[in-house]
């Protein structure tokens, strides 16, 4: 099946000789339109590496990555940069906001890098900020925002405009449960709008928002959950305490 994001036989090795580290081994993963996939695993399992490779920030040692059916390895550096500006939204674990730009400017960063004028970009940026409940903070600088607010700005940046690939690393780490749930609802609705997303997390509650949870251990996919059938009630027979 072709999906928006495809990893085919992706492996990643760091270092060489005795210090070799196999971060990923032979990963096959496909994410379709409107699908949210969560990647769970202990630290060192390679989940962050999977995300950077999917996001064209790193090259795999082996295997192929396709976004929208296009081979990343066949793209020039500029083409990949364009992909990141227009199609991919990336949420880093430590938000990575530019301290010199306001929240709104941070959100519209990929748009402005793409050449969209600052006025038009600001309109789109404000839309994204409103969706995340930050419309009052548009012109504040990151060092004037709380950790949770900064995380939401980072998420807004990943959703601004009409990008359709979302790659998020612990997107709710700094948020309390109310804000965290709001963010996940937003991501779900983005998925319903057609965004294909990979969310890396160690939080099972967060992962439970996904359509599919993939389990990573020692660089391999060892298991994944089935798509939940829609159920009317909470009363599903299962192991009880």
């Amino acid at each position: 099946m072709t999906g928006v994001i495809e990893l085919r036989g992706v492996s990643k090795v760091y270092g060489s000789g005795a210090a070799e580290v196999h971060a990923l081994r032979d990963i096959d993963l496909t994410v379709g339109t409107g699908e949210l996939v969560a990647v769970m695993g202990p630290s060192g399992s390679g989940k962050s590496t999977l995300l950077t490779i999917a996001g064209s920030l790193e090259d795999p040692s082996d295997g192929e990555v396709l976004i929208d059916g296009l081979l990343l390895s066949a793209m020039s550096r500029n083409d990949r940069a364009r992909l990141r500006r227009r199609s991919i939204g990336y949420v880093f674990q430590d938000f990575n906001l530019l301290a010199g730009l306001t929240a709104a400017e941070n959100v519209t960063l990929p748009l402005e890098l793409d050449g969209i004028g600052s006025k038009a970009a600001r309109v789109l940026g404000l839309q994204a900020l409103v969706a995340l409940g930050l419309d009052g903070h548009a012109d504040r600088f990151p060092d004037e925002l709380s950790g949770g607010e900064r995380q939401r700005v980072a998420i807004a940046r990943a959703l601004v405009g009409d990008r359709h690939v979302l790659l998020a690393d612990e997107p709710t780490g700094a948020l309390d449960s109310a804000n965290g749930e709001a963010v996940m609802r937003l991501l779900r609705s983005a998925a319903e709008g057609g965004v294909a997303g990979i969310i890396v997390t160690h939080d099972a509650q967060l992962a439970s928002w996904a359509d599919r949870v993939v389990f990573l251990r020692d660089g391999r996919i060892v298991d994944q959950t089935a798509r939940p059938a829609s159920a009317e009630s909470l009363l599903v027979p299962g192991p009880s305490s």
Partner: peptide, 9 residues
């Protein structure tokens, strides 16, 4: 790094 990740050339 952030700039590169958001698609700066």
């Amino acid at each position: 790094q952030t700039l590169t990740a958001t698609g700066a050339t």
